[in-house]
């Protein structure tokens, strides 16, 4: 089983898109080797714009390129795109609904050793609240590549959330990506459904193995498109579950869990377990150490689901 970070897959997919479409361009803010737009730069430097350490300007320039018919992929760390340039994304990209793809890496805790300033557990919330913004987080290599094809076709602003750390494959080459459509990755036998995004799909699948030994077999659904949310699937599975679980490498405030809760509280009130980073900053450490401490490792997911399941009895 290959292990590739979604940022790596993004770089490869970006070059492939650029080969097919002359209008594809990339922008970066001095971290092209980290967020992998350097793959496009090495292929065609005339379509790669390094804007220096100036994220606000990078987003504005991307907006201008989009007005002029280019398909700009602007990249930085999640923290410095969604965070630093939030207002530029909101006013210069989303308000005019321009065709800018904001593709960020090092989201969540995945930038382990760099610590809290470079980690970002707030970006889904920040991007999700902007009208007309599409928010996508692929879980693996294939899904990232297919998502890139889909967002290049789609006309409008997109936030693509990528990770720094290598992740295991969930999908194979036959996988089909449909923007806004949830994917059932494991149909369980117990009336518990886990809605997971990004690498939490892998962690939730591993949690199933642990839980199976205890007679618990939850369904795992991959929510790669956090906005627009696949409400139909969320409601359908919530309706037949006694417990639903949201799992995300993000704050439990404002992210996938909140998005699901916003729908279900109105249309199918459900008992929900929020798995994610509590209202705290991260710190330096390996990804494994951080996932464990902040409660989003496979083991912690399994333990929390088991505890919640017992409370239901």
């Amino acid at each position: 089983m290959s292990k590739m970070a979604t940022r790596e897959s993004f770089g490869i997919a970006l070059k492939e898109l650029a080969e097919k479409n002359q209008d594809v361009v990339a922008l970066n803010a001095d971290i092209s080797k980290s967020t992998k737009t350097d793959v496009l730069r090495n292929y065609d430097p005339s379509r790669h714009f390094n804007m220096g350490i100036a994220e606000a300007n990078m987003i504005g320039v991307a907006a201008g390129l989009a007005v002029s018919g280019k398909i700009p992929f602007a990249s930085s760390f999640a923290m410095f795109a969604a965070g630093r340039a939030f207002e530029q994304i909101r006013n210069s990209v989303a308000y005019p609904h321009l065709n800018v793809k904001i593709c960020v890496s090092h989201a969540g805790l995945s930038d382990g050793p760099d610590g809290a300033t470079h980690q970002c557990n707030e970006d889904i919330a920040l991007m999700r609240v902007i009208p007309g913004m599409t928010v996508i987080q692929p879980c693996d290599d294939i899904e990232t590549r297919k998502a890139m094809e889909a967002i290049a076709e789609y006309q409008g602003p997109v936030y693509l959330r990528l990770g720094r750390a290598p992740v295991e494959d969930v999908n194979d080459e036959n996988y089909e990506f449909h923007l806004g459509k949830a994917v059932i990755v494991h149909e369980g036998k117990t009336d518990i459904t886990v809605f997971a995004t990004g690498v939490m799909v892998q962690n939730s699948l591993k949690a199933v193995n642990i839980l199976n030994e205890k007679g618990i077999d939850p369904t795992i659904i991959n929510i790669h498109t956090i906005k627009p949310l696949d409400e139909k699937t969320v409601i359908e599975y919530a309706a037949k579950s006694r417990l639903i679980v949201s799992a995300e490498e993000h704050s439990i405030i404002g992210g996938l869990g909140s998005a699901i809760s916003e729908v279900l509280s109105q249309k199918c009130p459900s008992r929900q377990l929020f798995i994610g980073v509590k209202d705290v900053f991260g710190e330096s450490g390996t990804v494994e150490q951080l996932y464990d401490k902040y409660g989003i490792s496979a083991e912690k997911i399994a333990a929390n689901i088991e505890k919640a399941a017992l409370e239901l009895l």
């Binding site: 987003i59 907006a63 002029s68 700009p72």
Partner: peptide, 9 residues
């Protein structure tokens, strides 16, 4: 910034 993007295009 937007003008820079248009001028580059």
């Amino acid at each position: 910034s937007v003008g820079v993007g248009m001028a580059i295009a």
